[in-house]
């Protein structure tokens, strides 16, 4: 009988310990895993190592003269000054999708730039703004226009968009055709979406709310654990108080 009571009292304690461990893992485990690279991604794909097996184990004379004023390279790119364009500054998080903000939708409706499909929006945008976002310039502009990206994707390949005196504007070497072509912001789906968003265009169904993101799920799980822990602890305390 004693052992039964003992085990029934021990169960909540064990459950509380497990809950504590789970909460600690949620708070610290995932973070440490990410720190070890467990969740990291992207970056350059590393090639196989070509380093010969012979080691560098030699006695070498060292350079010891004063070395001042040297400019060294770095492991990481140095931050660059970049001008924020109006288009990029006013971008909604996800233009055209259900998660777009209600304000963008409402503004588009009031401005008459609300469309049921992307094709309709693009056609209207091309008529209204096509001349504004050209890529031909008689001489290289002092600053790169915000609607001319550094790179664009052609046939699944990323290519540089550069100013070409021969083309008289910004263009790229088409990797499929092997020829230089003028860049056209209105034919670049990604840039077109940015420009349309920046000018208050909206297409697709009205925004729908009710979704949740992973952060919300994590918070909900943590709260659930805390509630369960409190319930278990209070239940155990109640049992201890009983004669």
């Amino acid at each position: 009988m004693r052992s039964t009571i003992s085990s029934s009292r021990g169960l909540p304690r064990r459950a509380a310990k497990v809950a504590c461990c789970l909460v600690l893992f949620v708070f610290f485990g995932a973070e440490s895993l990410a720190a070890r690279g467990g969740f990291s991604g992207g970056g350059f794909k590393r090639a196989p190592s070509f380093r010969p097996s012979s080691a560098r184990s030699f006695s070498m004379p060292k350079l010891s003269s004063p070395r001042s004023g040297f400019t060294w390279g770095s492991r990481q790119p140095k931050p660059r000054a970049s001008a924020t364009s109006p288009e990029s500054a006013t971008l909604p998080r996800s233009f055209g999708g259900a998660a777009s903000t209600r304000s963008v939708y409402d503004a588009a409706r009031s401005k008459g730039t609300l469309f049921s499909s992307r094709d309709e929006a693009a056609t209207n945008f091309g008529r209204s703004y096509g001349s504004r976002y050209g890529s031909t310039f008689s001489s290289p502009p002092s600053t790169r226009p915000s609607w001319i990206p550094e790179t664009t994707t052609i046939g699944g390949r990323s290519v540089n968009v550069v100013y070409s005196p021969m083309l008289g504007g910004y263009g790229y070497l088409n990797p499929l055709l092997g020829t230089w072509m003028l860049y056209d912001a209105l034919k670049d789906a990604a840039m077109m979406d940015r420009l349309m968003a920046g000018n208050g265009y909206y297409y697709g169904p009205p925004p729908v709310y009710g979704g949740y993101d992973p952060g919300f799920v994590n918070l909900a799980v943590i709260l659930l654990f805390v509630i369960v822990m409190i319930a278990i602890a209070s239940g155990a305390a109640r049992r201890r108080r009983r004669p």
Binding site: K62, L63, W72, G73, S74, Q76, P77
Partner: peptide, 12 residues
């Protein structure tokens, strides 16, 4: 030692 220097991914 010069030979021990590493090539920088981002040369300045």
């Amino acid at each position: 030692v010069s030979s021990a220097l590493e090539w920088a991914p981002w040369p300045d």
